Computed example of a mutant assay.
Amino acid sequence: MKIVTVGDNCMDIYSDGKAYPGGNPVNVAVYLKELGADSSYIGWVGTDPYGHQMAEALKGKGIDKTFLSRKEGKTAVTHVELIHNDRHFGLYDEGVMAQFTLTDEELEYILSHQLVHAGIWGHAEWYYPLFKQRGLLTAFDFSDQLEHGLVKTLPAFVDYSFFSYSKDDEFIRELLKDVKKQGSKVAVATLGENGSLAYDGEQFYQCEITEAEVVDTMGAGDSFIAGFIFGTLQGQSIQQCLKSGTKKAAATIQYFGAW
């Protein structure tokens, strides 16, 4: 099971000054590796100490970082505040990732994998038509950017589209229907404490959360995505994939930082 994630990474800096490696594609790669997949990550870090910390952290997790590039400048950072154990994002500085592009060599490397995953902040969306044309399975995290222009254009090239919302209501159901109509195989929404919801064009699937002691919600959505993707590639049903994602998320929220 070879999976590659592409795009944004950042150091999550908490109010106490502690910094943890993160970013949706990075987190998904790490969680997939923990589940047993062969995962790779492609992205840019700066020449600052945070870039070194990110590289060492990925190495320590056994992630293939052949195409993790060091660029002159600063590694992306996100300032995080914990309020009642729920993470709230503050200022975000993209650093060198603001100019991220893929080389021909990197594109060929990506195409040697089974599935590629990226997110809304990763500057990788331009390559998705090529990924689909070449027969690669694709996943994409639109996060909570439900009104973003990409929601109306990218699902045609995304097999598994993921969203973050708050509850199961008519709005999110209509959005998932529209995303499926555009071309996605399955459209999925995580709903915080209200569980998760998926739509495959025929029916909706619901899954409640798994009760766990919440220490830090950082990475919960990303770990859900990893669990869902892993389940999909194992041939699990959509309902089973929702449960796999939920189980992985429940484990992640019981410690500080994404991983």
Rank of each mutant, 00 (worst) to 15 (best):
S143L: 05
F131E: 05
Q203M: 07
L102G: 02
K181M: 10
A189T: 02
S161Q: 05
Q99Y: 08
A118H: 06
W126L: 07
L175H: 03
T153I: 12
L137E: 11
K185N: 13
A189N: 03
Q182H: 12
Y127P: 01
Q114C: 05
F140Y: 15
S166T: 15
L91G: 09
P129A: 09
S161E: 03
A189S: 14
F89D: 03
D200S: 05
L115V: 06
I172V: 14
E202W: 00
T190P: 01
G90W: 10
G95M: 02
Y199I: 03
G149I: 01
Q133W: 06
F204G: 03
T103I: 06
A198S: 05
G219Q: 06
T101L: 09
A139H: 01
L107C: 01
K132M: 00
G219V: 05
E94V: 07
E94R: 14
L150W: 12
P129C: 12
F142I: 11
P129S: 12
S112Q: 14
Q182P: 06
E193R: 12
Y92K: 10
L130H: 08
Q114W: 00
V179F: 00
A118S: 15
A139Q: 02
H117V: 05
T138Y: 10
H123I: 00
Q203K: 15
G95Y: 07
L191V: 09
H117Y: 10
F163K: 09
K167Y: 10
G183H: 03
V158P: 01
L146G: 02
G201C: 04
F157C: 07
K177S: 10
L91S: 08
V151E: 02
V96Q: 05
H148L: 11
P129Y: 07
Q145D: 10
T138E: 02
M97K: 04
A98L: 09
T210V: 14
A198V: 02
I110S: 03
L107A: 02
T190W: 01
G192I: 05
A187M: 07
